Amino acid sequence: MGVRPRRSRECSKTRPGASKCDGHFLTAGLVAATFLVLLGVSLLHLPEPVALDPATAVREVTLLIWTHPFGRKRPLPDCLARYGVDGCVLTDEPRAYPHADGVLVHHRDVASGGAELPPEATRPPGQKWIWINYESPSHTPALWRLEELFNVTMSYRADSDVFLPYGYLVQKHGDGQPLSEPSRTSRPRLVAWVVSNWVESQARVAFYYHLSQYIQVDVFGRAGRSIPEGLGSVVRLVRRYHFYLALENSQHTDYITEKLWNAVLAGAVPVVLGPTRKNYERFLPPEAFIHVDDFPSVEALAGYLLALSRDPARLIGHLRWRTGFGLRQPTFWGEHYCTACKALRKTMGQTQVVRDLTQWFES
């Protein structure tokens, strides 16, 4: 999965009182459920919950939300009541900085100049800085400014210190939305695409232009028609279609966003443009999606979609896997805060430094 950020084997000498490090930081345990082995295909496993160190098990930790993502302030959740995460206190009050155990910094806000970094000169001993980012490398500027400042990474990448993807499969009766049983009922429409950020230079726009030469693609969102009144959501809209174009705005390791999971939840077959097929197969069984790279040409892909729409028995082959599974889509941003705080509590006393942040994230 590319190059992991190299960690210092000793704590930063510039931080008085920093304790000796002990290997890599633990990845946060999200829920008791993990990805499963499905139809003989090993899917990506979410990390198992890790027992707390008895020395810190009774201690609460304070996580300071230094920057609300994209400058939009939201109420902070009660981690225990909302997500079952105990021992975590969230605050967004800057005056808490001197005694906070961790500080969560959203990349875009400091990189764009909308906020300053925390004052490193007065950084308390042992305090962890957590770098959080859910944009792709193509939309993550000025990483070089943040080298050797952070102790923990949190993102959609599976090799982050704290890994929380845009979505993941769980057992049907677990903590997730059950996926509907596959149906042979014909849907009235063929292909939909919902897109809000239309950029002519993006690969997904070029793909759309090419595909639309061969089949009808209904485009919705700010770049197309409005979602019909009464439907109210992308998922309800996509339930009318056989296929949904889950086209990422850029192609990078593990960058698989809600576009894919909206299609899965709606029961449409996602046609994906993003990382490699092998990367997608870490999140879904191989028959659960159609990758644009599976075909020698866009014309051949269009022909395959038309053939499936006319043959329900073949189409259901892309949907049968759904039986017995549910979908978890973490809630932005409260669940991310509580997950970060949970990881912070599990790694008390460890203060490593993330090196080569740019090389890792852009790999």
Rank of each mutant, 00 (worst) to 15 (best):
M1G: 15
R6V: 08
E10G: 04
S12G: 12
K13M: 09
K13G: 10
G17N: 10
G17S: 09
S19P: 00
K20F: 06
A32P: 02
A32H: 13
A33K: 05
S42Y: 06
L52E: 13
L52H: 08
P54I: 04
T56F: 15
A57K: 07
R59D: 12
E60R: 09
H68C: 05
R74A: 11
P75V: 06
D78I: 01
R82E: 14
Y83C: 04
D86L: 00
V89Y: 05
V89H: 12
A96R: 06
A96Q: 06
Y97F: 14
P98G: 08
H99Q: 11
H99D: 02
V103R: 01
H106A: 04
R108E: 09
S112F: 14
G113K: 09
T122S: 15
R123V: 08
P124I: 00
P124T: 06
G126H: 04
G126N: 12
Q127R: 02
I130T: 09
N133Y: 02
Y134G: 00
E135P: 02
L143V: 03
R145S: 14
E148K: 13
V152A: 06
V152K: 05
D159H: 09
D159P: 05
S160D: 13
D161H: 10
V162K: 04
V162I: 15
P165T: 10
G167P: 01
G167I: 05
V170Q: 08
G174D: 07
S180A: 15
E181A: 14
T185V: 11
R187C: 03
S196F: 05
V199A: 14
E200N: 06
R204A: 04
Y208M: 08
L211G: 04
L211V: 07
S212Q: 12
Q213M: 12
Y214W: 09
Y214H: 13
I215E: 00
A223E: 10
L237M: 01
V238M: 10
R240I: 03
R240Y: 12
H242N: 06
F243E: 03
L245A: 07
L247F: 13
L247P: 03
E248N: 14
S250M: 06
Q251S: 15
H252A: 12
T257I: 00
K259N: 11
G267W: 05
G267S: 04
A268G: 11
V272L: 01
T276I: 03
F289I: 04
V292E: 12
D294A: 13
F295D: 04
P296D: 11
P296N: 03
V298K: 01
V298M: 03
L301D: 02
Y304S: 13
S309T: 06
L315S: 01
R322H: 08
W333Y: 15
E335F: 05
K342D: 07
L344T: 03
T351W: 05
V353R: 05
V354Q: 06
D356I: 02
D356Q: 14
D356K: 05
L357I: 09
L357W: 08
E362N: 13
